[in-house]
């Protein structure tokens, strides 16, 4: 029964990882860049939520719209003022953009350190759990997992079933093609980066309910998000579901049997293994086709 419990926890974790990763996917899809500041954005949003809850007494779910909007604008400004100006193309351009987001993550870490110190904090909220036979469902984990899944589904629906979403998806498939259809690719880049940042922030808000976060946890989270989307194939929204499940369950199970260090190490080891052996991911949607 223990293994079942660990699997349940893993799946719930996966729901949240999915949201964290889809926001990275969104940015990668349209702009072909990996946002290295992704994890730090998640962590900062989580810490901000804790601050709002402890200082002002704001319910964390009411904090979501606030961090969402705030990070949306931060993302939009970063894209407009900085990323857009990198004119290099190809690999060198990708690397320069990665370097810029690397720098941004250091700025965010520093701001967070200054504002909230270096401690890892969590938000005690919904501490009890539901029981279903021998399986225990921690309320916070259920809520977080469900929230992540629902928001990911909303993102997926928006991309596939609405005009503006389709425009964004079209841009990620072919910038030139989208351009000839009258889609402003530059605008789509801004939207993708802003929305990606905002979704990361929303994920951070619920993540802090189930795991302690600190300013320095950003890099771990970035790599975790990257592993999830790399497992599913970069830019593949359905593949990321599989990626999230693999990472979530593996972390839950291996973490229990082999200890916390393995839990931390796992994304990094997966990162190198995936890139070496399955650089195109598990390609769920290619199999489905």
């Amino acid at each position: 029964m223990l293994i079942l419990q660990l699997l349940v926890n893993g799946v719930l974790l996966a729901g949240m990882y999915l949201l964290m990763a889809q926001s990275l996917n969104l940015i990668f899809g349209v702009m072909r860049i990996v946002n290295f500041a992704q994890g730090t954005m998640i962590a900062v949003a989580g810490l901000f939520t804790v601050w709002l809850a402890t200082r002002i007494g704001l319910n964390p779910f009411l904090a979501i719209p606030i961090v969402f909007v705030a990070m949306f604008w931060i993302g939009a400004i970063v894209e407009r003022l900085l990323l857009r100006r990198i004119t290099l193309r190809g690999t060198q351009g990708e690397l320069m953009t990665l370097m810029v987001t690397f720098g941004i993550s250091f700025v965010l870490i520093n701001v967070a350190l200054k504002a909230w110190g270096s401690e890892y904090v969590s938000l005690p909220y919904l501490q009890s759990s539901w029981r279903l036979g021998p399986i225990e469902f921690a309320k916070s984990l259920v809520i977080a997992g469900a929230f992540g899944t629902v928001l990911s589904a909303a993102l997926f629906s928006w991309l596939n079933f609405t005009g503006s979403g389709k425009a964004l998806l079209a841009t990620s498939q072919s910038r030139i093609g989208a351009g000839t259809c009258g889609i402003d690719a530059g605008r789509m880049s801004t939207l993708a980066f802003a929305l990606g940042s905002a979704l990361a922030a929303a994920a951070g808000t619920v993540l802090v309910l189930v795991t302690p976060l600190g300013p320095q946890s950003g890099n771990d989270l970035t790599i975790l998000c990257f592993v999830v989307i790399a497992l599913g194939g970069l830019g593949d929204y359905l593949g990321a579901i599989l990626g999230a499940l693999v990472v979530g369950v593996a972390q839950s199970v291996l973490g229990f049997y082999l200890g916390g260090n393995v839990q931390v190490l796992l994304p990094y080891i997966l990162l190198i293994l995936i890139m070496l052996f399955i650089p195109r991911g598990l390609s769920l949607s290619r199999l489905a086709r």
Binding site: F102, G103, F106, V107, I109, N110
Partner: peptide
């Protein structure tokens, strides 16, 4: 943070 800003 200043290092980060400078790199950017």
């Amino acid at each position: 943070g200043l290092f980060g800003l400078l790199v950017v």
